[in-house]
Design a protein around this nucleic acid. Structure first.
Length: 286
DNA sequence: TATCCGACCTGTTGGC
DNA sequence: TGCCAACAGGTCGGAT
């Protein structure tokens, strides 16, 4: 499940293999893979054909390929199971191949968007003055962004009447964090997922942000987290960070700090993993 | 206005 | 062996 580190691995791969190349054709094999493009897949392809791709960029879990004209960008979200792969043209089609983009230098391979669950997709958008696609203007800066404002994040947490894990998954407050890294950062910070954000002190917020950055940097160094081959880099290779997780996916296994079995609790149609001893639930009514 | 929650989607797993 | 329910979860938009 691609979160920030996995998307960053893909962005780096695209930057290496796609930047500077000129699109020769775009084939859409599944209409759902083209998002928010009312004019349809043919128009999407026509607008991209002949365009040169500039350096790949990312905010949170979104990544985009600006076109060299400086006005438009191809925005990508991998959803749950999306993959952007560089493949030789002769390679057999993947079972869930959704979009194929070829280039004027075919020997360098083609770009394929493969997505089993079709939660992800590509779209085409004008860029704002800041170089951001307009439709993701509401997405907050991520904690790896040099301009991430920790004071503003803390103030926003204090204003909200919600709980800390909900806030971490709210991409308008902090972007790039998904279920896996939220559980990992909360475990490292010894915070229960239902702690009200209004009760967090400034030092606790700082600690939380530090742990988010730490766990993301460690994951990035290992190529990301892959559970079931649904996440791979542009060369189809899995990451190894799943072997280093402390909470997520470790139900009934001993906490690496205190030995207490990790618990899994249903939470918002997904799961939360936590140590019941290190991460005490908030007192009722707090 | 802020917050919550169901729908979308398909492959895998486990229970019967 | 086969069927079915549960599960995985990021984002959007409607409901409260």
């Amino acid at each position: 499940m691609p979160e920030l580190p996995e998307v960053e691995v893909v962005r780096r791969g695209l930057d290496r293999w796609v930047s500077g190349r000129v699109i020769a054709s775009v084939s859409t094999l599944h209409p759902r893979a083209i998002r928010r493009h009312a004019a349809g897949a043919d128009d999407f392809a026509a607008r991209l054909t002949g365009a040169e791709i500039a350096a790949a960029r990312r905010r949170g879990k979104y990544l985009w390929l600006p076109l060299a004209d400086g006005e438009l960008a191809v925005l990508a979200h991998l959803g749950m199971s999306g993959q952007l792969l560089i493949q030789p043209a002769a390679a057999p089609d993947e079972r869930h191949l959704r979009i194929r983009i070829t280039f004027t230098d075919p020997a360098e391979g083609e770009l394929r968007f493969v997505d089993q669950r079709t939660f992800g997709g590509l779209s085409l958008h004008p860029l704002t003055d800041g170089g951001l696609p307009e439709v993701i203007a509401h997405i907050a800066r991520d904690p790896m962004d040099a301009e991430f404002d920790e004071d503003a994040f803390h103030a926003a947490l204090r204003r909200r009447r919600t709980t800390v894990k909900r806030a971490l998954l709210d991409q308008s407050l902090i972007s790039g964090v998904g279920n896996i890294y939220a559980d990992e950062a909360l475990w490292r910070t010894r915070l229960h997922y239902e702690r009200p954000t209004a009760s967090l002190t400034r030092p606790r917020t700082a600690e939380l942000v530090t742990h988010i950055r730490e766990v993301m940097n460690e994951a990035l160094a290992q190529g990301g987290t892959s559970f079931d081959s649904l996440y791979v880099n542009v060369n189809g290779e899995s990451g190894y960070f799943d072997r280093s997780l402390d909470a997520y996916g470790r139900e009934d296994e001993p906490c690496r700090r205190c030995g207490t079995p990790i618990r899994r609790r249903p939470w918002m149609n997904r799961s939360s993993y936590y140590c019941p001893r290190c991460q005490r639930p908030p007192a009722a009514g707090s």
